[in-house]
Computed example of a mutant assay.
Amino acid sequence: MRITAALGGLAALAAGLLAAAPAAAEEEGRPRSQPVAREELSTGWSVPWAIAWLPDGSALVTERDTHQIVRVTPDGERTAIGTVPNVVSGGDGGLMGLALSPHFAHDRTLFVFHTAADDNRIARLTYDGTTLGGYEPLVTGIPKAEFHNGGQLAFGPDGHLYASTGDALQPELSQDLDSLAGKILRLTPEGTPAPGNPFGTLVYSYGHRVAHGLAWDESGRLWSAENGQDTYDELNIVRKGRNYGWPVCEGPCTEPGMANPLLTWAPPEAVPAGLTYTDGTLYMSTLRGQRLWRIPLNGAEPGTPQAYYAGELGRLRAISTVPGGGALWLGSSNADQVGQQPGADILYEVTLDEGVAD
């Protein structure tokens, strides 16, 4: 196992770490969850991509290549609620990220990230409990390509929507603040730049290659899991206005003004696809690595990662913490452009057990 903790990144984030030092001290030795069992919850999927939880405890799941959103009950019963219009599949594009409005119980609104004929875009829809409708594009013109489309969506603790975009196979766009490629975007539910964005645009951070996983810890820190090129995949803390280095840096970075990752992996052990948080711990799904990484946190400092299910389930993508925190839902990605096994994907429920001190 080749894992490299980017110590330079910790130095570069010294101010933030000092501020978090009391919390880190309190968390050191804290019992944390670990996977103890898994079961097949639902079979017959083709690239389940994102999971979002409904108020009744069931979830909505996007299926990338069919462009469907499917409701899944806690016991695995599936109901397709509708097909998102204007979606075009190809490469790693299609119907990707999904996020429910923080006020979903009242406004019945959800958001998707998808590839269209000429671009990637973020759109708003409604779900009345039975059917999907009301498609409205909010952000268009996000560069698209066969690969490196990004596509993650998540609402932050501040009530704003965050989106990860890939470099669209044009690495120079990640450093271009006039481009929406290679960025993490922050927007209002109406699709406008969120108040306090560092450049007065949708851009929140830049210099990303393909940030697929986004997750907040209980202290409100935003973590991202990012695909590298040939040498390093990354785990980062995302901060407003920061430059994460791509394509100048891949992995550890000493360039002035560019952030270091806090952890790196060799791509054969990772290629991150999803990230979720519960009980002081990040869980990262991986495609090429075909394993689930468990990453304990001490404040803003990640501990030693541990791998689960290596080579047992194939490629892994969709991941989310079940409300209440006692389990994860984890989806395989063996029907994608690499695995090429239509209908072979499985949605698993992974039971977590507390009591492990890291």
Rank of each mutant, 00 (worst) to 15 (best):
N236P: 04
Y309H: 07
F111S: 08
G280R: 07
F155V: 07
I81L: 13
P55L: 09
L169I: 01
S224H: 03
Y135E: 15
P256T: 08
Q229F: 01
A215V: 09
L132K: 13
R186S: 07
G93I: 03
N243S: 09
T109P: 05
D279V: 00
I237A: 11
L7P: 00
G166C: 06
A21S: 12
D65R: 14
E172C: 00
R124W: 08
F104C: 11
A117R: 10
Y232S: 07
A154Q: 14
I346N: 02
V112A: 11
L7W: 14
L41M: 09
N86L: 14
K144M: 06
A15T: 13
R38E: 04
I295T: 12
L282H: 11
R291A: 13
A327M: 05
R291C: 08
L17Y: 03
G156T: 04
L287R: 07
G191L: 04
N260D: 15
G325V: 03
M258G: 05
T62E: 13
G326M: 01
S58N: 10
P157M: 04
Q340A: 05
G82M: 11
V72K: 10
R32W: 00
R294Q: 15
Y277S: 04
H67I: 04
N334E: 14
A163W: 07
I142Q: 00
W53D: 08
D176E: 14
S164C: 03
W246Y: 15
G324P: 07
L60H: 12
R64E: 11
G129F: 13
P143E: 08
T351G: 14
R288L: 13
G156D: 03
G299H: 11
L125G: 09
P305R: 06
V112K: 11
G343S: 06
E354C: 00
L287Y: 06
N227R: 06
W293P: 01
L287K: 10
A327Q: 02
P247Q: 01
W45T: 00
S101E: 12
I346K: 12
R78L: 13
G134Q: 05
L18Q: 14
G129K: 12
I81Y: 13
R209Y: 08
W53K: 09
L222C: 12
A163E: 04
P323K: 09
T276E: 04
Q34P: 00
S219N: 12
T281A: 06
M96V: 08
T165M: 02
I51H: 09
P171E: 02
Q337A: 09
D167I: 07
A123Q: 10
E354W: 02
D230R: 13
Y135H: 15
N86I: 00
V248D: 09
Y308E: 03
G44L: 09
R71S: 09
R2M: 01
G134R: 07
P323H: 08
L17N: 05
P22I: 04
Q152T: 15
D230Q: 14
A37H: 11
R209N: 06
